Computed example of a mutant assay.
Amino acid sequence: MAFNAFGFAWKHAYKIPGPILRGLLNVAADVTWLLHNGGVHQLEKNLQRVRPDLTPKQVRALSRPAMRSYLRYFGEAFVLTHASEEQVRHRVRAVNDGPVVAAIAAGKSPVLALSHQGNWDLAGVWASAHLNPVLTVAERLKPEEVFQDFVTFREALGMTILAAGDSGVFRELLRAANGPGRLICLLADRDLSASGIEVDLFGRRARVAAGPAALAVGSKTPLIPASIHYERITGERRRHAGSPWGIVITFHPEVEVDRTLPKTEQVAAATQGWVDALAQTIHAHPQDWHMLQKVFIEDLDPERYARTLAKESHG
């Protein structure tokens, strides 16, 4: 069922006029929000941690535009292969791209740490055209047909995709990071490997992926956090973009790494560094953090998490 829905959307969504498609997705988001299923419930738990100043009623209200933002991402993804270069260019506004541009000019392949914010696929298309070709890692979805659809979709946009969990992925990333001509973009606010790192996130313990920091430390490549949020666009820019929505990519300062520390401590400190940077934008634009999964330690199954920690300590 999921495969058919995704496959149908990728083949036919572009035929639907933009305003109608956006309206349909808003309706789907609102219905999902009203049903208040497990994913929406978890989203609200995460939003409450991001904005502890809000009452439960205010968090519930915030989750509605958050679901619309989440479905907007999918709607844009379904038609992104049909977007022109001009449309992509006008849909994206880059802020503080100096550090990443300088690193590329110096012949390096920077590592970008990202979270599930805004439209990361649109950001990847823009970056591949205006910075360096993007190399990234994607979660291996089930069934396999859905995963292959996502890989085909992203590779059609100019990105190179590796599958999380496949053997040799980190070695391939390390090889790329040690040479020029790439931009290595890693969505890391969820630990998909069961070997993540505990960090402080909004004053609570959370578990994120070690990949960006481990790769930057191992290759001595710049680690640059990059956050994404939606913005309304108007006037001439909207006409050229072909959409009322654009994204802002904010490139945060390079994470400083103390090379005198043991490597494990370097990785832990660098991970906390990129998490702190991205938390700023998540707090400012919580509705665009598409996190319907468990990332905070207190939400994880205690016994299973204890077994994970025990396995790591003996690994």
Rank of each mutant, 00 (worst) to 15 (best):
V295C: 06
F170L: 07
L261M: 13
T160V: 12
Q148W: 01
E144L: 14
G203H: 08
N46R: 12
Q117H: 04
L35P: 00
D301S: 05
P19E: 02
K294H: 13
D200W: 02
P253H: 09
N178Y: 07
R171M: 12
H41K: 15
H41D: 15
V295K: 10
Q280T: 15
G18P: 00
R182P: 02
G107M: 06
W126C: 07
T81Q: 14
W120P: 01
G196N: 12
K220R: 15
L186S: 03
V208H: 08
T136G: 04
L135G: 01
A164P: 03
V111N: 01
V27Q: 08
D97K: 10
A94L: 13
G168H: 09
S109I: 03
F147C: 08
P262K: 04
E236Y: 01
D166H: 05
S63R: 11
E144A: 14
A209I: 12
R140S: 11
G75S: 09
R238E: 15
H229M: 05
D288Y: 07
L261R: 13
P286M: 03
L292Y: 06
A103Q: 00
L122E: 04
D189I: 00
H229D: 04
Q42W: 06
D30F: 10
G235T: 12
E256K: 14
R68V: 05
